[in-house]
Design a protein around this nucleic acid. Sequence first.
DNA 1: AGAAAAAATACGCCAAAGCGCATAAATTGT
DNA 2: ACAATTTATGCGCTTTGGCGTATTTTTTCT
Lengths: 83, 83
Amino acid sequence: MSDLARTPRQIGTLIQRARKKRDWTQKQLADRAGLRQATISTIESGEKPAKLDTILAVLSALDLEFRIGARSRGDASDIEEIF
Amino acid sequence: MSDLARTPRQIGTLIQRARKKRDWTQKQLADRAGLRQATISTIESGEKPAKLDTILAVLSALDLEFRIGARSRGDASDIEEIF
DNA sequence: AGAAAAAATACGCCAAAGCGCATAAATTGT
DNA sequence: ACAATTTATGCGCTTTGGCGTATTTTTTCT
């Protein structure tokens, strides 16, 4: 399963959920990702649009990754050849 | 199906593939995404790490989207509960 | 080969992301 | 309620992504 992330806010929420699932503080995640606690805070809020590199660092620290697929309404994954 | 995108370079390549599949020029994609042709160029090369917003705009223009999931070696999608 | 279209680069400029450092506000736990 | 931990903000500074404008360089098509 993978959750879609179309907006910075959605991405922030998913990151926060994953972090809490691991019982990590923002500081712990920040250290692992080479960022500041404050940066994690803004990312999770999704208000200040982050840099791609920063998000990738966070995802990596959480053992997560981006996937790119066709837009699907709802949560389906009925996709064919796009690339 | 969805392709994983762990690095700016991978993301750039996927975007380029999707664009070519539609027979769009960088200029056409740029216009649809509200960006410059030059910006698309750098994104596809993956050299200059882009901003998250910019990537999201491009994906949207291509009717693509990000999905976040557990890291999987290879191309499998055998994922469970992470969030 | 030559022309035309597309893609890669260049340069100065501006906006803003993330930093260090620090503090206020909110949560959690006893 | 109180202390301790965690999270949200603040401020000045540095770095850099994307813009406008424009020019190469590369690819595509007669």
